[in-house]
């Protein structure tokens, strides 16, 4: 489970930890939307601020990089693809492929936007307790008459509870199969089937056990409401975020 530590709540006392989760969620959405419309200067400012925020909440930078390494690889691909496929003034020509300055600019822009959204999500998740996220989502959904907010909230929390379990299980199953020489089998379909079926079976069994455990503790949809409290700080933060969004647009 050690690999999962960044994308999860970590205790702390920073300002970002203290803010009300509803405001944080609203800010998250606002900044994400703004970043999708922003250009290089705005994005650079935003990313700089996010880096400061990550330092502020005391998450180690190396673990963040490790956590998002696959995402970074993806971004690199996007960048290269953009740079090669957009027509414009050539910068480098190599073996019949041309990299254009417009393409490079486009690629950096797209990567910057995607990267911002991921960093935002990471900061949000690591400074907000899952129960608070759940409470915030529930609060935003309550005004909609056709959405059963409480049920959605429970589902969210169960999904979050289950992701580490499933990943753990996947790792264990993979290890157990490797120990018995699955790598000698070259057929990927065979390997996929042999891997998925036991994993699914165990996941469902676990889900079954969890249901029984929840029932044993009197689970019902009618439960004590989550605790949310907002103060002056939260409104100030929201105001600042709105100013920021206007600034970067």
């Amino acid at each position: 489970m050690a690999e999962l530590t960044v994308f999860g709540y970590r205790t702390g006392t920073s300002l970002l930890h203290i803010l009300d989760s509803r405001f944080k969620l609203a800010c998250l959405i606002l900044i994400s939307l703004a970043s999708l419309k922003a250009y290089i200067p705005g994005l650079s400012l935003l990313i700089l601020l996010l880096v400061f925020a990550i330092i502020h909440i005391r998450v180690s930078f190396i673990s963040v990089l490790k956590e998002i390494q696959y995402f970074l690889i993806l971004l690199t691909f996007v960048l290269i693809a953009r740079a090669l496929s957009t027509p414009g003034t050539p910068v480098i020509e190599f073996m019949g492929l041309t990299m254009t300055s417009q393409g490079l600019y486009d690629g950096i822009l797209v990567c910057g936007r995607l990267g911002t959204v991921v960093l935002l999500g990471l900061i949000f998740v690591s400074t907000t307790r899952p129960s608070e996220i759940k409470a915030a989502v529930e609060w935003f959904l309550t005004p909609f008459p056709f959405i059963p907010a409480k049920r959605v909230a429970t589902m969210i929390s169960l999904v979050m509870r289950f992701i580490p379990t499933i990943l753990n299980q996947a790792k264990e199953t993979a290890d157990a199969q490797r120990a018995r020489g699955i790598e000698n089998r070259k057929n990927p379909v065979y390997r996929l089937i042999k891997f998925t079926i036991p994993l699914m079976r165990r996941t469902f069994e676990d889900a079954d056990k969890l249901i029984v455990a929840m029932e044993a503790r009197c689970y019902s949809e009618n439960r004590t409401d989550p605790e949310l409290s907002s103060g002056k700080k939260d409104w100030i933060a929201l105001l600042l975020v709105i100013c920021l969004c206007i600034l970067i647009l």
């Binding site: 307790r129 129960s131 929390s157 509870r161 056990k209 029984v212 455990a213 503790r217 439960r223 004590t224």
Partner: peptide
């Protein structure tokens, strides 16, 4: 239960303990 792992519902230790009392609407 026999299997303590599957009995844990909450994301943090204190949230897990709070799960039952929350269900009782305290």
């Amino acid at each position: 239960f026999q299997d303590a792992d599957s009995q844990i519902v909450g994301e943090t230790v204190s949230e897990d303990v709070a799960f039952g009392p929350e269900n009782l609407c305290l």
